[in-house]
């Protein structure tokens, strides 16, 4: 077998750019999907049936279709239906945000439901409104409680961003696969890609473990 690892160094600049886009995409997705998840969870818990029903439909829809299909759909179908034409990055970001918001919504809903009813009652007894009780008392506690779950979602998301490579976003997976196609160095590029994902993913996973230990529910 004739391996030539120099191809990895030769294209290190492009790979580095791919890493930057992958990390940027992960970060931007979470930046949208955390507030998105909170809003969807609050809507779901609303006493207004229309509002909670709308949230439930959104969440169940986007949680239950394959992410790759969502990526393709936003890229090929959405522009046709909506006249909305986004860059590949923005399209990937949209697809991932829809999916992760739906997941985060369930995470926050579970977190909010895990806070004792007495906490809300104590806030109401002070004269707070339901909204004030939720924002000042319940949500901050729920957010802390679900932090480990959000961290896990982050790590999954980091790996799932590779799916947007199918619409040429320029992330790490897409870049590596492009180089493979140009140089025919299949084995080297796929291995390098695996190593880079692992090197970036492992510390994140370890960090999640530590967050679990520190913030996990101990009650």
């Amino acid at each position: 077998m004739n391996l030539d690892w120099s191809v990895v160094w030769q294209y290190s600049g492009a790979l580095g750019q791919g890493v930057a886009i992958t990390l940027g995409l992960t970060f931007c997705t979470m930046l949208i999907a955390i507030p998105g998840g909170i809003v969807l969870a609050l809507m779901r818990l609303s006493s207004n049936r229309l509002v909670s029903g709308a949230s439930a439909c959104f969440v169940e829809f986007f949680r239950n279709i394959p992410l790759i299909l969502l990526v393709y759909w936003t890229f090929y179908v959405m522009p046709v239906f909506t006249d909305l034409s986004l860059s590949p990055f923005a399209t990937g970001l949209l697809a991932l945000s829809l999916n992760v918001s739906a997941y985060n919504s369930e995470t926050f809903r579970a977190g909010i439901n895990s806070i004792r009813k007495g906490q809300t009652e104590a806030a109401l007894a002070l004269g707070m409104s339901q909204t004030e009780a939720m924002l000042k008392i319940v949500l901050p506690q729920a957010a802390r409680r679900v932090l480990p779950v959000l961290a896990s979602t982050w790590v999954s998301l980091f790996k799932d961003t590779s799916l947007v490579s199918v619409i040429a976003v320029g992330d790490l997976a897409h870049t590596a696969l492009e180089i493979r196609a140009q140089t025919f160095r299949v084995l080297e590029m796929l291995t390098a890609m695996a190593v880079i994902y692992w090197l970036l993913g492992y510390p994140q996973a370890k960090l999640v473990d530590r967050i679990y230990k520190k913030w996990g529910v101990k009650e």
């Binding site: 007495g118 906490q119 009652e121 104590a122 506690q141």
Partner: peptide
Amino acid sequence: FQNFELFP
């Protein structure tokens, strides 16, 4: 309240 319900 019986269980205090301080905000932790």
